[in-house]
């Protein structure tokens, strides 16, 4: 440990020297790693936004339960009570005709004028039920079965479709992560092996002088780390440019849904990519280093 601390400066100098001794191939590797990590970053971003959407929708998953017309006020209040006690229901409340109308007006915006064509309010009252998305499949039939319920309107189709898309993206993302990981590991470990090969005489001399394998190998671990971190940095910068561009283009919303908070997301993505870069750099160098023992 003492030796390690005493020699940190030396290790960095050696690492930089190794990188400089093969600038072109290191440069190409950094560019390659940057692009790969950029790709990874895009997938992570899309998954992040997708998950954000779904969790927003999950929070807002609501269905409208229309009750039979012959109910009086007390029956309706009791019915609302019954529904709100069903497992998986987070909230149930009555929306009367007036509210239903003003809600529609809100949705229509400018076009709300058409509603003035009606003499009477065309909307009926209903019970707005907020539910936990995961319990949707059980809750909806349960509500429909209630005697006082006429019918239930839900947005189940849209939700499950969206959910499917997100799962798909996640699987795709996982595949991309695996591919990125393997590719980066191959690039880095190859580079390290090359560095070791180029320095094999020096390594042999150090061994003859009694240096430990850790002392000999650490500069190469640094090489791997520096290169992947640099690649990660460039990839992140490219990605941030893309994200900023897209946000400026899309404004604040996309498909009626608000985009996630940019600052939070960017911080998450930077940490993710740099973390992955670090891990891949470390593993790649260790794989590359494992060849070090075989040339003595």
């Amino acid at each position: 440990m003492k030796t390690f601390i005493y020699n940190i400066g030396y290790f960095f100098k050696e690492a930089i020297r190794t990188i400089k001794s093969n600038v072109l191939s290191n440069f190409i590797s950094v560019i390659g790693t940057s692009l790969i990590l950029f790709l990874l970053g895009m997938v992570v971003t899309v998954t992040y936004i997708g998950n954000e959407f779904v969790s927003k929708l999950e929070q807002e998953a609501e269905i409208n339960a229309y009750y039979k017309e012959n109910l009086n006020n007390e029956d309706i209040i009791e019915l609302t009570e019954v529904i709100s006690n069903i497992e998986g229901v987070t909230d149930a409340r009555l929306v009367d005709e007036e509210e239903a109308k003003s809600y529609m007006e809100g949705m229509l915006g400018e076009e709300a004028k058409i509603l003035e064509l009606f003499d009477e309010n065309p909307f009926t009252a209903y019970i707005e039920v907020r539910i936990n998305l995961s319990t949707m499949d059980n809750v909806i039939p349960e509500i429909s079965r209630l005697d006082d319920i006429d019918y239930v309107r839900d947005n189940k189709g849209v939700l499950s479709q969206l959910n499917g898309i997100i799962r798909g993206i996640e699987i795709f993302g996982a595949l991309i992560i695996i591919a990125v990981g393997i590719t980066t590991l191959i690039i880095i470990s190859h580079l390290i092996r090359q560095g070791i090969y180029n320095n094999k005489e020096q390594i042999n001399t150090l061994r003859l002088l009694g240096a430990s394998e850790g002392f000999i190998g650490f500069p190469y671990i640094l090489v791997g780390l520096l290169l992947t971190l640099l690649g990660g940095l460039i990839g992140t910068i490219l990605l941030l440019l893309l994200i900023n561009g897209s946000y400026d283009l899309l404004g604040n919303g996309f498909l009626f849904l608000p985009l996630p908070d940019r600052g939070l997301m960017v911080r998450y993505i930077i940490m993710f990519i740099m973390g992955i870069s670090f891990i891949l750099g470390l593993l790649g160098s260790l794989f590359g280093l494992s060849s070090i023992g075989k040339n003595n």
Partner: peptide
């Protein structure tokens, strides 16, 4: 030749 013998730089 001396770096890993325990003395400071």
């Amino acid at each position: 030749g001396m770096r890993f013998l325990g003395s400071n730089p």
